[in-house]
Simulated scan of single mutants.
Amino acid sequence: MKKVVVTAAFAVLCSNTALAGTIERACLTSSNAAANPALCGCIQAVADRTLSASDQRMAARFFKDPHMAQEIRQSDNAAHEVFWRKYKTFGATAGKHCG
């Protein structure tokens, strides 16, 4: 029920991409055929609960440059390691609630 309410609320907001969040905009403009306002809104809702604004900006870049995710994951940079742990949690949660 909670998923339906969140998805419905974001579907209404997604009718205007200017209102969309960072992840949602990246999702909607991606070349992924499965991207739609309800799915992208759900993913944004999960991002809002699990990622900071700066983390969302980094993650949104992965939609245009998927290889960047691999570079961040393999990086020895401590900040990238912290980000990657949060990103994995975000991905698992989005998969569970939005997939």
Score class of each variant (00 low, 15 high):
I72P: 01
A11K: 06
A59M: 13
I72K: 06
K2D: 11
F83V: 08
Q70H: 09
L39N: 05
K96P: 00
E81R: 15
C27L: 05
W84E: 05
V82W: 03
D76F: 11
A92M: 10
D76Y: 09
S30N: 10
A78D: 11
R25A: 08
M68G: 03
D76P: 03
A94P: 07
N16G: 07
D65I: 10
T50S: 12
T22K: 04
G95N: 15
S31L: 14
G99H: 05
V12K: 12
I23F: 01
V4Y: 05
A34W: 04
K86L: 08
V4P: 00
D55F: 12
N16K: 09
L13D: 00
H67N: 11
S15Q: 15
Q74M: 13
S52W: 10
A69D: 01
C98P: 04
V6P: 00
R85C: 02
Q74D: 15
T22R: 03
W84Q: 07
A26I: 12
E71T: 13
K2W: 11
A18D: 14
S30L: 12
A59R: 06
A69Q: 14
M68P: 01
N77K: 07
R85M: 09
K88Y: 07
A34C: 00
V6L: 11
V82D: 05
K64Y: 05
M58G: 00
S54T: 15
C14V: 01
K64R: 13
Q44H: 08
V5P: 00
T50I: 01
K3Y: 06
L13K: 15
C42S: 02
V12F: 04
A20E: 04
K2Y: 13
A79E: 15
Q70V: 15
Q56E: 13
F63A: 14
S30H: 10
F90W: 02
K88G: 05
C14F: 06
K96C: 04
S15G: 14
C42E: 02
Q74W: 09
K3A: 08
K64P: 00
K2I: 05
E24W: 11
A69G: 05
G95A: 04
S30C: 13
G91W: 01
S54G: 01
H97Q: 13
R61Q: 13
R49A: 10
A94L: 11
